[in-house]
Every structure is written in structure tokens, then in C-alpha cells.
Write a protein that binds this DNA or RNA. Sequence first.
RNA 1: CGGAGCGUAGCGCAGCCUGGUAGCGCACCUGCUUCGGGAGCAGGGGGUCGGAGGUUCGAAUCCUCUCGCUCCGACCA
Length: 445
Amino acid sequence: MRLSRYFLPVLKENPAEAQIVSHRYMLRAGMIKQQQAGIYSWLPLGLKVLRNIERIVHEEQGRAGHIPVLMPTMQPADLWRESGRYDAYGPEMLRIRDRHERDMLFGPTNEEMITDIFRAHVESYKQLPMTLYQIQWKFRDEVRPRFGVMRGREFLMKDGYNFDLSYEDAMHAYNRHMVSYLRTYERMGLQAIPMRADSGPIGGDDTHEFLVLASTGESEVFYDSAITDLKFGDRAVDFDDRAGLEAIVKEWTTPYARTDETHDVSLFHEIPAERQKSSRGIEVGQIFYFGTKYSEPMGATVTTPDGARVPVHMGSHGIGVSRLVGAIIEASHDDKGIIWPEGVTPFHCGIVNLKQGDGATDAACEAIYSGLVAKGLEPLYDDTEDRAGAKFATMDLIGLPWRITVGPRGLANGEVELTSRRTGESETMSPEAAVERVAGIYAGL
RNA sequence: CGGAGCGUAGCGCAGCCUGGUAGCGCACCUGCUUCGGGAGCAGGGGGUCGGAGGUUCGAAUCCUCUCGCUCCGACCA
């Protein structure tokens, strides 16, 4: 993409309403525009990041054998009356009435609807196990939205639901989700720690929240530093291997890690003092097992091998997709702007032309641009008439992890500059070598 | 939902107290110069002062109502 033809409305000054760094940078980098309290338009740069996060979630869900669906945002109230949650949910649920005076709602979550789909089409244990998921907009009418997309009213969320014949099978689904989530977050450049949690309004027995450590997090968290040393890395996972998954889950849930809601001081003090850590955390996902809480009242049953009719065991599993955009920025930025992890960056590499209109410089930039495109990468080429300083400031703000700087001075020696946004370190090399280097960085992702 | 604020040009703000017909910086447009870390000079365009009602000869300014947004708290993915 050429910046001269792109829509990137960056702001030099900080918008008054933005308090935390991710909100400020998302507004300044032209990623979002607020339309109402807690409701945002996604501008091109923000949308690219959002789509990248979605893509990673889809890929990892697919790897775990989960099946995508898409349910409507608008749901009939009657479905929620069946589960008893229409009255239980409270004012966070946005209730709407259509022209025929029928009660509807903008879904804050989808247990009822997915259960309705399941009961309509699944009759036999032979069709289990099954996990369906979607990435869809949700609405929760928060009393006080704030922190930009970190706590909006409308938000994009991946919500998945497993259907299993037994508690044991459902726990395998639980483990499958935990492991796939660990992979998912790591691919986004995040360390998200599973912490034992409260089940809240979804209800249930077993539940873990995934928290990203960041000073602006909404929750106070306590953990054994041993857990932050764990890396998922590129280990192979067989999602059908129950014992294997159980071992991984055990590895990640054994060290103490809890939010203030479930914090147990005496357990915490059993860890060596130097490993007792507390911090703030941003919740970016949660997994639940809740058994037959919905399947029983809503009649989601299957026939067992011996002919009995039993309600299925269920769980639900969420990832805050839009919230992750903010969480990643909270976890990865400096005083100049965002620093995107390679896995989610909106463009793979920036190209800064220091002397637009200079024949040799323009040609070198074009060659680098087409070289990167030929490697399957998406560069952002700043071909505007701005001065060098302004171009650097914009690139730093929008946070592309790599930048190739091209100017007459370097080109005289046949060299351009490759700069890491994260470290700020630069190396000079030939334009061809720079293209190769950048391609190499992304080859493993 | 309790408490506190704020709505004036795309963004950040001043003007309001003490009424007299709107201003600054950035951004934008034109020209010249400049050109490796948010350039300089000159010229220019853009505002129903959130909305409605009222007081007044006259309202951004005073009064009433209303809508929106923000912050602190309680609540929450």
C-alpha cells in the first residue's frame, strides 16, 4: 500500500478523552473512531489488525478441530426465557422491540442460541464430540464504557461451545480449549496466563481466565513467577491425545496464578517469597465448563449407545477479539507509539522514502516495494511529500515492526537502512538484502 | 446508578465570571524557501459556539429544559 493512496488519519495531538495508552494510540494512529460511548468504527489500519487477530483465532480453532458458524447479533427473547436468563441478565442486556412488539435483544453471548441450533439438528451420541464457534459482534450495555476498545459496549468476540456426552469428554474439550488458547495468544506476541476464576453470569464449575500482564489491567493478579517462564513455543500438539493435553494443561495450571476474585493468601504464601509476584492483568479470554446448565432446561439431548436420552455436557469459551487489539498495545508500546508483534502487524514493513521525487530514491523504493510484494508481504510505502522527521514519527506511531529507510545519502553507497521498531537498532545493507531479511523474518510465521 | 466535569473549526484549547456579533496552536489549501527525526515565511479557506426555549435593544457569555461525551466510585469480556 502506498501511503499517498491510503486512509490513515493520524493525529499529532492526544485526544482529550483517551486516558490509557492503547486508547490514545489507537485514536492517534487512525485505527478507530468513536461513534458513541463504547462504540467504535474501525478505520483501515485498525481493521487490518482486527482481521489479523481473527485470522489467528480461526486458524487455531481449526487446528483444534472446532467448527465455525455465524449466529445473528439479534436474538429472540423467548430463547432466553427458556433458560431463565432473560430476567436474570439485568440491564447490561440491550433489549429491543420490533414493529410487531416482539421482544428481542442484541446478544451479549450465545449459549441459548447455540443450544437451540444443537437441539434442532443433533440426536445421537455418534455426532459427538462437537465444538462450534463464531466470531461475532456482541453488545453489553456497560454502565460506564471506557478505555477505548478495551471496555466498549459493542465488541468482537470469539465464542465457542462444546457438546459432549460425558463429564470426562467435556473436560477434554476444556483442555483442548486451554491449549489452543495458549497457542493463539502466543502467536499474537502475548503472554496470557490462565488463572483460576469465578464463573460470573455464564455460570459453571470449572473456569479459567486468560490474563495479559499490563500495568493498566483491570484486575489485580497474583502469580508464581515460574508460570511466566513457560513458553508454548513450536511444540507439536495432537488435540485428540487426551493424556498429552492433560499434561500441558497441568503444566500451565499448577503454578499459582489467580485474580483477586479467587486469590488465596495462605496458598500464595506457600510459594518461595522471591517467586511471589503481583501485578495488574487484562482479561483476554475465559473458558468454562458448565455441564447441563443449558442443555437440561432447553432439551438439548442425545441418544446414548444403550438407548437412553441424556442432556449433553457443555462449556463455553471466549476470546475478546476487539479487546485484544488494545491489550496487545498495552503490552507492546513505547513513548513514540505502538510496537506491533509480527503476528498481528497491519503491514509487514514500512518503506520510508527520504527524498520523494529523486529519481534514484524513488526507483529504489519501488524496487523494494515490489520485492516485498513478490515475497507475499504487504509493505506500507510512505511516498508522500512529507519531511523525513514527519515520516519517521508516523511510522513509529503506527508501530510497524520493520522499517526500510531509503535516501540519497545511503544509496550513493548502494545501501538502505533496516530498522527494528522494537529495539530501534539499524543496519545498513543493499536493498536486495533488506528485502531478503524482512522476508526471512516473516517466513517462520 | 451515586459523585464531579466538559460540549466553541477536523484535533487540542482560550473567550463565559463582568452580555456588544468569535480567537489561538496544530491540521488543511496556494506560493516561495527548506529537506536523514513532527520545517520557515507569506497569503487563504473553514465555526447554526451540542440542541430547544427564555431574559435582553443585543446572548458563546445570564436563566430553564434537553441531548451527548468524559472522569472518580460501584459493576463488568
